[in-house]
Design a binder for these strands. Sequence first.
DNA 1: CATCATTGTATCATATTTGTATCAATATCT
DNA 2: AGATATTGATACAAATATGATACAATGATG
Lengths: 218, 218
Amino acid sequence: MNQILVVEDEKNISTLICMALSQVGYKCETASDGEIAADMLEKKRYDLILLDVMLPKIDGFELIEYIKDYDIPVIFITAKSDVKDRVKGLNLGADDYITKPFDVSELQARVEAVLRRYSKSVTHFSFDDIEVDTESMIVTKSGEPVDLTIKEFEILLLFLRNKNIALYREMIYEKVWKEPYMGDTRTVDLHIQRLRKKLGIKDKIQSVFKVGYRFVDK
Amino acid sequence: MNQILVVEDEKNISTLICMALSQVGYKCETASDGEIAADMLEKKRYDLILLDVMLPKIDGFELIEYIKDYDIPVIFITAKSDVKDRVKGLNLGADDYITKPFDVSELQARVEAVLRRYSKSVTHFSFDDIEVDTESMIVTKSGEPVDLTIKEFEILLLFLRNKNIALYREMIYEKVWKEPYMGDTRTVDLHIQRLRKKLGIKDKIQSVFKVGYRFVDK
DNA sequence: CATCATTGTATCATATTTGTATCAATATCT
DNA sequence: AGATATTGATACAAATATGATACAATGATG
């Protein structure tokens, strides 16, 4: 179930949006200004952000810049007249826009389209003698299937999508567990160990002292 | 799920088309000119092409010629006034046309009609010693009919149309029951169990722990 | 209205995953 | 090198998921 964050200072509009989204099966939370939105983004993982460009405190464009780090698609909301803003938003990396006043079904359609587009990513990876198919969720090593649990599978995927980058434990935890990382546990470590063992790759997933882990390739 | 390629240089029109199509369950991608379209066709298989005849670079009619090799149905889009173009398009082998400005529901209807006519939709499946005919809704195992209930039959069909893909419970439920999946029930599991039992396939429908099920073939 | 097939809930048994605890090994720093 | 912190390895317990079975509710059919 997709989590959507609506950043909008006009209460009646945000309510309308949330109703429209929940109708088609999305979970929806609202932030009334950019600061609150930034806080919420730090605490929780969202699948999509609907963002009014006219906001108090931090404005929408600044927030888009900020969101970039999170790799979350953004649909922004502008006034119908404001062509300038629309272009600006798209240039800043937003995925789509919608103009006020908007039609409810149009909103729903755009949200679905963006989410679909976004999730349409690479489905197949391979390295060494290992093949990873994200659609079937099957992983094989020299042709033989390897039984990974979902957590292990998702960690592997995270590595494959972030090769040669040192990933912080905290980051790994939050991406895979989809909940905030509370202090230090050994949970991530343990899963990495199991992953290394099952795939027979000790050297490919390196531990980065005091930081986390790094998947090296090539 | 049918993949449709929309070749249209006017962004607002292609967006409108995509929304209209996604509304009725099609996946939609756009190309802003003929060259891009040709590239996309080389990379991926589409079930239908919606083609504006007025295009920059390669024009629509040239593109129809090119598409011929791929055996994909084409609906082309022309201005209302242009009778000449319509005739030309149909002569070149297009399957239907639609005139601008068009009505959304007309578009949807024509797309469906063409796809039905073309009917890439497979009506017969077989695997192991099992035969599935979707038109008569008859399933046989080594020649002997197997009594499946509608739900079981639809789940089987879903699997056959999504071989080797891990399907989430939620997805299975929503596709078959056509209503939103509220939290966890064991309903899907139970039906899968019955299906496995009736067809005598434990290993072909694998459970993917914490995710759902996967039909493996080949 | 009675019967039957279908569908979904409840329950129990089993299997799998996940996380904590513990100790051993290794890296970092002075 | 030695102290300390960090990570690896192992075992185990708790939580969670699925399979199997029985049965109740629902809806279709004659």
